[in-house]
Design a protein around this nucleic acid. Structure first.
Lengths: 334, 334
DNA sequence: TTGTATGCGTTATCAG
DNA sequence: CTGATAACGCATACAA
């Protein structure tokens, strides 16, 4: 404690916390002393009394069954989706001096550990990306009284703040583009249908195609991985050899579809047009580059962070949500 | 505090911290009470006295000048490299109940904030990936007295624990494979030569080729991005039209090279063989899939985490390092 | 405007 | 083996 100069620690505390009622001269002196001694307040002691930790958790809650071969970890962290989330959240959190703690909850055990961690008061709030419908985690966290913002609309409506993209409208964009191209027989590769986002994209796409007079749209369910995209594309092609357009519910699956189409000698987009969803980095690295529905993930994550911090500042704040509008990014695949 | 039952808080503390000297019967009672009330110790109060936070920082220290177009954030978090690091570190940290705090240091301002954060005692140690030679951060952190493990050999040798891969030997693997294929005129795309890893890969590759009698190996410097790989490949091709083999210092640049080769009508690997470095997800999603030097990043990150925790447990521990041996993963590009 | 005193929830020391 | 009691380092209500 920099009390080598004749001031009380209370004054030092006031200076550090920028309390206005401090004599400018004294403040100067203290600031100089702080500078000289390199003093920084101990975080543990501080948060013991302020009840704030200045850090929030970003939790990815995903059931492990969506993955087969390699360990769960590798998948989620390598997914471009993850990186964009972190990026967007950090852009608003960092200027505020708030730190981001990364957490995973892929099974019951991890969930239990996570809840304990949260109960310990390690973070001021949580941003959560929960991908399956019946995930108990978000509910548990609100019951805990911890501020929380969800990524994506909750399965069953209940009072929780969230931000999402309009999946249906995005899928419609894809449908419109495919018809405008003149596609006659189109199919779709959906995501796992226990996820509301996957459901919405499928619904939206079918609705969009229906508007243009295409009543029946064959669909094969994938699980958002490249491999599942390949398998789905094969099945689609086997059952509908004359297919000339495909909408995949994410870029990774679209990329898988591209591989299969190339292997079968179909030119993209001349023979078969392909549209993805997300506008992830996979979209630009695919050959050909993917036409895809862009989800403004960074903006969404930033909105989540902002919303969360509002709730942290004011515990009484009512829940609110923010729906972003997707856009179609036209590249070469359609 | 679960003192509704007639025990002192000291005893509760003992039970929670699994101190052996506690009457089994009493322990039962306490455990039951804990269970019933859902009590969890407050982390801030605990670490105020234990001086441990049970969390470590993963910091990515990268100069921003390596990136042009889009914000720095997006790049680093979307890079497969990052995901694999997180993944490996988490695999050892999580079972220990240690949390991972993500931090970025791309400029002086961010570095200052970072140092303040560390000084506040928010974490027990740091795993740092510092990509440029003259980064002051690692040094500053050791001076702070905080346990630290570096990813990659430090520029100038000084006492700090690190784990690395043998870049030279990896590059030699690539050289051997290229000549075994019968390549006559090969070039290389290096990483930014202010990074020791990039230097080592270039040195190792040239040494390997020299052993097979290839004295001169043309090199164009890239910056580890897809775009830079494209530009470098174009230049290489312009200056050496008869090139039939290329070693790129990472997969992303190799991917860029692939694009250019395809655009110029060169078949891979028949006309030009291409080898990358990393074995990132980009390697398998490229067309054709990349033959590449695999860096066991997950294992390396796990080793870093273990090493770090050793230093956290025992502050007197001497620094130590661990060099991993890379392997060649043969796919279709060479 | 500034200093004093108290409490935040644990763990650790030391008697008992 | 267990219970008081003293730190831990800060913020803050209250007094001056």
């Amino acid at each position: 404690m920099a009390k080598t100069i004749g001031v009380s620690r209370a004054t030092v505390s006031r200076v550090i916390n920028k309390v206005p009622t401090v004599d400018p001269v004294l403040r100067q002196t203290v600031e100089r002393a702080i500078e000289a001694t390199g003093y920084v307040p101990n975080q543990a002691a501080r948060s013991l009394v302020t009840r704030r930790t200045d850090s929030v958790a970003l939790v990815i809650s995903e059931p492990e069954h969506r993955h087969f071969d390699d360990p769960f970890f590798g998948r989620v962290f390598t997914d471009p989706f993850f990186g964009r989330m972190v990026s967007g959240a950090m852009s608003v959190l960092r200027p505020l001096g708030i730190q981001l703690v990364l957490m995973l909850a892929e099974n019951a055990d991890a969930r239990a550990k996570l809840m304990t961690y949260l109960r310990q008061g390690h973070v001021d709030g949580v941003i959560i990306d929960s991908t399956h419908l019946d995930d108990p985690l978000p509910q548990q966290i609100v019951e805990l009284g911890l501020p929380i913002v969800l990524c994506g609309r909750p399965a069953k409506p209940y009072p929780i703040s969230y931000v999402d993209v309009d999946h249906q409208s995005g899928a419609r964009l894809a449908a419109d583009h495919l018809v405008a191209r003149g596609c006659q027989e189109v199919g779709t590769i959906s995501g796992p249908l226990d996820m509301s986002a996957a459901q919405d994209r499928l619904t939206g796409f079918r609705a969009g195609m229906a508007q243009h007079g295409h009543a029946y749209i064959p669909c094969v369910e994938g699980n958002f991985t490249v491999e599942s995209g390949e398998r789905a594309m094969e099945q689609l092609l086997d059952e509908h050899p004359r297919l000339d357009g495909v909408f995949a519910a994410n870029d990774l699956m679209a990329q898988g579809a591209l591989t299969v189409l190339a292997a079968r000698g179909r030119r993209v987009p001349q023979d078969v047009a392909v549209i993805g969803f997300d506008d992830s980095s996979a979209a630009v690295s695919s050959r050909p580059p993917l036409t895809t529905v862009r989800q403004p993930l960074e903006d969404m994550a930033a909105a989540m962070a902002r919303n969360l911090m509002n709730h942290v500042e004011d515990a009484e704040l009512r829940v609110s949500s923010h729906i972003f509008e997707p856009t179609l990014v036209i590249r070469e695949s359609a």
